[in-house]
């Protein structure tokens, strides 16, 4: 049986929300999420989605993504270093085994890791609960073994979900999900257990959407990032907003794009005094500590509470 409404969060009008203030009185929490992914050369089929646009092996698709790991990622890391920005890595967990050098370099920079599934060519569709748990447990353990860090965030592989996904990650004490795009501020999610925050991941300014789906030029992407930032910074005066730039080195680090993209970072960094340049887990932690209860209370008064939990209405 399918449902018309996931019931994962309650309706909450954007206007008139109680104020969120980020640490240091900052108006906008800014984070960058480089997706560091591994796409398999000859992945198995999933009944609901083919892994590649062409039959395996899809040479252009595969090698372009590998270029992202061999060349692009290192350029992007240099660029973020230049602006003193840390990445929150949306990680294909399998990459830890393939390319530990990348993990070491990110760890040395104190970047955050969160799970983006095992491979970006293995989808959640059709998994039973035990299989989904196995992916989550593998994610936690593999990052812990490699880095000593406990992951707190989740973005389902290739944005593929089951009805259980968010309940399960909440149960494993994840702090935030990047899977939902309904807001520019964090919000409590209605999971069976835990305290899971819906973290704004700004999908509309994700470089896959802008370069590949929309087909926008490098300059246009930069213009859009600047306008997106300016609007959210202005609104952050009333109540703190979140902007994420989700990136893929195989796209943004292309030689014809990276320096144009840098202009957006330059613009954002110039507002350093007004913004909190941070990571996904730090935003989630701050929100859970200071604004979780305030948000629920305001949703109750000014929003629409429907009770129940995700895919389990009252």
């Amino acid at each position: 049986m399918t449902r018309p409404d996931p019931n994962l969060y309650d309706y909450w009008p954007y206007q008139g929300r109680p104020k969120i203030e980020w640490p240091g009185g900052k108006r906008l929490a800014f984070w960058i999420a480089p997706n560091i992914e591994y796409y398999e050369f000859d992945p198995p089929p999933n009944p609901q989605r083919q892994p590649w646009p062409r039959p395996n092996p899809d040479i252009i698709g595969y090698s372009q993504r590998d270029w992202g790991n061999r060349i692009g990622h290192w350029r992007l890391m240099d660029l973020l270093d230049k602006y003193g920005m840390r990445g929150s890595i949306s990680l294909s967990i399998g990459l830890i085994d393939h390319h530990p050098e990348i993990i070491e370099a990110c760890k040395a920079r104190n970047w955050e890791f969160f799970s983006h599934g095992i491979y970006n060519t293995r989808y959640s569709y059709g998994m039973d609960e035990a299989q989904e748990r196995a992916v989550i447990e593998d994610s936690i353990k593999s990052v812990q073994d490699a880095t000593g860090d406990r992951i707190r965030g989740y973005l389902a592989p290739a944005l593929t979900h089951t009805e259980r996904t968010l309940d399960l990650i909440a149960e494993y004490d994840f702090w935030y999900s990047c899977d939902l795009f309904q807001d520019d501020q964090p919000q409590p999610l209605k999971t069976r257990t835990g305290k899971l925050v819906s973290m704004p991941y700004s999908l509309e300014v994700n470089d896959v959407i802008t370069y590949s789906v929309q087909g926008w030029s490098p300059q246009r992407y930069t213009d859009i990032l600047i306008r997106h930032f300016d609007q959210l910074l202005e609104e952050g005066e009333e109540s703190g907003t979140v902007m994420c730039i989700p990136l893929h080195a195989y796209l943004v680090s292309q030689p014809h794009r990276l320096r144009v993209f840098e202009d957006a970072l330059k613009h954002i960094a110039a507002h350093r005094d007004d913004i909190w340049i941070t990571t996904g887990a730090e935003i989630a932690e701050h929100f859970r500590e200071h604004y979780w209860d305030q948000s629920l209370a305001d949703i109750k008064v000014r929003g629409v509470t429907t009770g129940g939990t995700g895919f389990a209405p009252a």
Binding site: T2, R3, P6, L8, Y11, W12, P13, Y14, Q15, Q48, R49, Y125, L159, T160, H161, T162, E163, D179, L180, F181, Q182, D183, D184, L203, E204, F311
Partner: peptide, 24 residues
Amino acid sequence: TPYPDLRHFTTRDYGNRVGVYRLL
């Protein structure tokens, strides 16, 4: 995308909870 397409559900819902208030 296949059910549950949380990506498009929430992207559309963004309009009703955030975008529309900007337009207002």
